[in-house]
Design a binder for these strands. Sequence first.
DNA 1: CGGAAGATTGAAATTACTCAAAAGGTGTGG
DNA 2: CCACACCTTTTGAGTAATTTCAATCTTCCG
Lengths: 257, 257
Amino acid sequence: MQYSSGDGGLGGQVEEAAYSPALPRDVSSPCVSCDVRTQAVCAVLSDEELNGLASLTQTNTYEVGDTLFFEGDTAGACFIVQGGALKLYKLLPDGRRQITGFLFKGDFLGMTPVEEYGYTAEVLEPVKACSLPSEKMQALVETYPKLSNRLLNLASMELAVAQEQMLLLGRKTAQERIASFLLWLSRRAEDRGESANPVRVPMSRGDMGDYLGLTVETVSRSITKLKTSGVITLKEGNRIEITDLDMIEAIAAGDGA
Amino acid sequence: MQYSSGDGGLGGQVEEAAYSPALPRDVSSPCVSCDVRTQAVCAVLSDEELNGLASLTQTNTYEVGDTLFFEGDTAGACFIVQGGALKLYKLLPDGRRQITGFLFKGDFLGMTPVEEYGYTAEVLEPVKACSLPSEKMQALVETYPKLSNRLLNLASMELAVAQEQMLLLGRKTAQERIASFLLWLSRRAEDRGESANPVRVPMSRGDMGDYLGLTVETVSRSITKLKTSGVITLKEGNRIEITDLDMIEAIAAGDGA
DNA sequence: CGGAAGATTGAAATTACTCAAAAGGTGTGG
DNA sequence: CCACACCTTTTGAGTAATTTCAATCTTCCG
């Protein structure tokens, strides 16, 4: 069974928000010069506002297998991913697992309408993330209406993705699920400015299965079938090349063979 | 195939927001005295704010099979359900259907982060709903920060429900799905102040299947099995009585037999 | 180089699906 | 009020997709 390892919470290596004095003057706070500033939640905040924010946040790094938090934990903070990859999942008592999402650079997590986290967040590839205590976040939302608008927008987009995933889980065949997933991975990579076509696949077959409602074996067989029919090619370094885009799109849409 | 009938859009019977002059003075606007005012989005608005709102909204009624809008339509308005029941669904090109949610009194729908609706909204039981043009909604959100907070909260709750549904669709057995669904229906009925235990089931077996990722036959067989094992009893009027709450909860949680 | 984890492939088992028919309900019109 | 037609639900039998169990192969690290 794959219960997560890791330090069980906020135990990454702490990297103080305070800055080295050797940096240029105009970079008055780490948030202002943050890598993901333009994509993340904070995109709507001005330089001055970000300066205030910096003192409330803490940037940590996490290793593969670490968890930012567990399903059921009291929600203490929310996070912005600055780099790396995470998987979010829910478990059934007997260990069956459903991954509800994969997160990358710029993504936001940890907001919950209730007091407890609704899923576990586990590191897939070494993560750098900044965290903000829930109360501070709450206060910020009250202070800056545009932040709440931004979060509403993000939540709405997440919801649309979740509904698309319901369609996939409820009604698509194994083949269609894999095709949809590879296309999604490719588009997300493109959004991040990474290679869309030979697309890097940072998760295991098991993780793919737990995301798509399939077993490892079915994932493997479906991928083999796509490979055999010339739709994709497996490249070294866990990368997959889409060799017939029209075909894989047709399959993903449920219009395939 | 069950493509929806109906008038294809905003064609319900219009009931003007203007009020009959015979009503008490203090009820200055229909929104202030609205049935669902305390549950719906508008719960966060004051009387004065609601007065302004009333002139922007229109209340319509819709018959069974009508659609408020179709997946892919340009989003023109959002809606608050004042009574009745709706199903929201997405279709694959070959007609496979996934219901993403059932909506009841007090629920809100029609907000989208993109220009098009992401699902079709079809009437299950005669609906009374008020609608608000998308631009007006957008303007309201900008004007009243608390409204955007409220919407964020609603979206977060919806998202949590969607993630729970992913777990159900990806990892639960037919039996577990039915048990989970009946419990959910029962709890929602309770929230609305209706009978939670003999719970009314307003949707067909087919709709249940399209929500739970099952076929009609599997839904029917699973219900029969729950009935046979004494967990539920089918009552007249499409109602189901939960006769062994502990058991159905255990099954729903994946901890059953 | 060796060992462990992940991925693939094969064969058998199972769950849910498909096709088909009967039973139960509901509403309409005679 | 009954009869008929239509639609939904249930039940049955066979099928198919995916899972399960098992073995082999590959990759990645130490």
